[in-house]
């Protein structure tokens, strides 16, 4: 029995490290859990990208669920996410609101002209001040906000077909089942 002891210790370590590897393949070790999940989205009042004289507030968007997608023309991963949004957007069942983050309006418009515009509504946060209230620290990030203005789901990083199928769509389904 005593002879087996080092081997058992070794196997325990193997198990621990194996668990660490398994855990990290399923979780993004850099993702910060948002404290805002299942809490009311922060209030905002931001200009529209194409009509900067008009602003859109949180209250304006109440009543219908929407997916708030934080993007920027300088963000490389957003280019990866964009075709997925374009392809999956219409079948999501919620409105797609583009949140242009820390971007020059001209750059954002050029980028959208080049890659296509999947958004029903586009708001711009050039100084990035409101984004702090959302806990945004990089783009892309996506927030699923329900009709009452509560954040139901958040994804940091690009929405991939896998994430859309396994996380976003179930979250939308659960939300719509609760309050259609």
């Amino acid at each position: 029995m005593n002879r087996l002891l080092p081997f058992i210790g070794f196997m325990l370590l193997v198990g621990l490290f194996g668990f660490g590897i398994w855990w990290n393949t399923r979780h993004d070790p850099n993702a910060i859990p948002t404290p805002l999940l299942n809490k009311p989205a922060p209030a905002f009042n931001l200009p529209k990208l194409y009509e900067p004289a008009q602003t859109v507030s949180k209250a304006d968007l109440l009543g219908k669920p929407y997916l708030l997608n934080v993007f920027a023309s300088w963000c490389i991963e957003c280019g990866v996410e964009h075709p997925v949004l374009t392809a999956e957007g219409p079948s999501l069942g919620v409105a797609l609101v583009g949140y242009n983050y820390k971007d020059a309006p001209a750059d954002a418009k050029n980028w959208l002209a080049r890659h296509g515009n999947p958004y029903g509504l586009l708001i711009a946060d050039e100084p990035g001040q409101t984004a702090i209230d959302f806990g945004v620290y990089g783009a892309p990030e996506s927030f699923l906000i329900d009709a009452k203005g509560v954040i139901r789901y958040k994804h940091i990083g690009p929405l991939t077909p896998d994430v859309v199928a396994k996380e976003l769509k179930p979250a939308i389904a659960a939300m719509l089942k609760e309050a259609p």
């Binding site: 910060i32 948002t34 404290p35 805002l36 702090i132 209230d133 806990g135 620290y137």
Partner: peptide
């Protein structure tokens, strides 16, 4: 900051 970015 914690309210927005968690205790991270």
């Amino acid at each position: 900051l914690v309210a927005r970015y968690s205790e991270f």
